[in-house]
Design a protein around this nucleic acid. Structure first.
Lengths: 192, 192
DNA sequence: GGCTGAATTCTAGCATCGCTAGACAAGCGA
DNA sequence: TCGCTTGTCTAGCGATGCTAGAATTCAGCC
């Protein structure tokens, strides 16, 4: 019995190692550099071991994405927890969200840019994703304004943040005015 | 002299064929299906011919992206041209933009999701991209509101639209409320 | 302690990818 | 018609994701 549980622990540890290594490699050299061979080499196992944990590369990306979703939720809650004024809470949320995207570009890519095989806005959506949305909703729902459903408002605000995050990071927008764009978004969208 | 110009015409025609075929294939089966082999087969030439027109697959994607940028600019201008009231112009612009993204997902991917090797927000930005931004600016600059630079406002609004476009298309947002989200964005962001 | 069978891991290889070198053919000017 | 440039193709390289089957390891039992 204890042999079995020890093996299970070791397997779980190795699975975490795979995900952490993939993430690290992606942050260091980009997702293109995360090949199954390189990943296998870094964890000091052969390639097929990866496939005993995940169906394929997609699922590994998906695992990184889920990790990221949990962290986004935590970051957003941490940033807003001490703040009471609704508008300031929104501003803090926006900054925390964009900060996360900028500091963890590979993770953010795993969540939105790449195909991690995850279901969104669907009954099959994994818990971490639902919780990340819930974390946004907790603050953004307060400033939806009358006649606007909190969920709908959150979706829209989130989309705007996502647009800023991706376009800024891909150098599609000049980087120097990033702060001003966030201010504009918060000022206009939030009603409180 | 005329032989030379005939050859140049034929070369240009073949280059257009490559770009059009890549786009068509991408819209039909996704960009993953656009391999150099399949593309070569469809244009009825061998692979190396592609490389006599483009440095590589990236540049082909980039060419599709530039085509898309011109079309976005045209679509936005067409949608706003007859409308005089600033706020209605903005609403028409938003709908036209999102409509384009939804109807041409592969082209939209080429512009923003994939690496087409294009420079943005930079002195080396190709003319079609600058013009697409200009088309947005023509309408959005009118409703920036006081104290907000038209360029900055356009960037922010564009980012919000881009967020809606990508999240909606990737099924990250429930599709049925798409219209309401656009209305919300236009109502709150535009000042006129 | 040594054997056995199952679980685990590895070696080797497949098909496909983007891309390119060098052989080959086509078509021009003389 | 010949020679030469220009254009095109065949064949192949290294790398990718993924997998079948061989090899190894290791727990459990006599």
């Amino acid at each position: 019995m204890s042999v079995r549980s020890r093996k299970e622990r070791e397997r779980a540890a190795r699975e975490s190692l795979i995900v952490a290594t993939a993430r690290e490699l992606a942050e260091q050299q980009g997702w293109d550099a995360v090949t199954t061979r390189r990943l296998a080499e870094r964890i000091e196992y052969s390639q097929p071991v990866l496939y005993s944990h995940f169906r394929g590369k997609r699922e590994i990306i998906g695992a990184v994405a889920l990790e990221g979703a949990s962290e986004v939720a935590a970051a957003v809650r941490a940033a807003t927890s001490g703040v009471t004024k609704p508008r300031e809470r929104v501003a803090a949320l926006a900054r925390a969200y964009l900060d996360f995207a900028q500091r963890n570009p590979a993770v953010y890519d795993a969540m939105f840019q790449l195909d991690g095989g995850l279901a969104f806005a669907d009954e099959g959506t994994p818990a971490p994703l639902k919780d990340a949305f819930a974390a946004l909703l907790e603050t953004l729902g307060e400033v939806a304004g009358k006649g606007v459903a909190p969920g709908l408002f959150t979706e829209t605000f989130w989309a705007a943040l996502h647009g800023l995050a991706t376009l800024t990071r891909a150098a599609r927008l000049p980087v120097e005015d990033a702060g001003r764009r966030v201010d504009l978004l918060v000022d206009r969208l939030a009603e409180a």
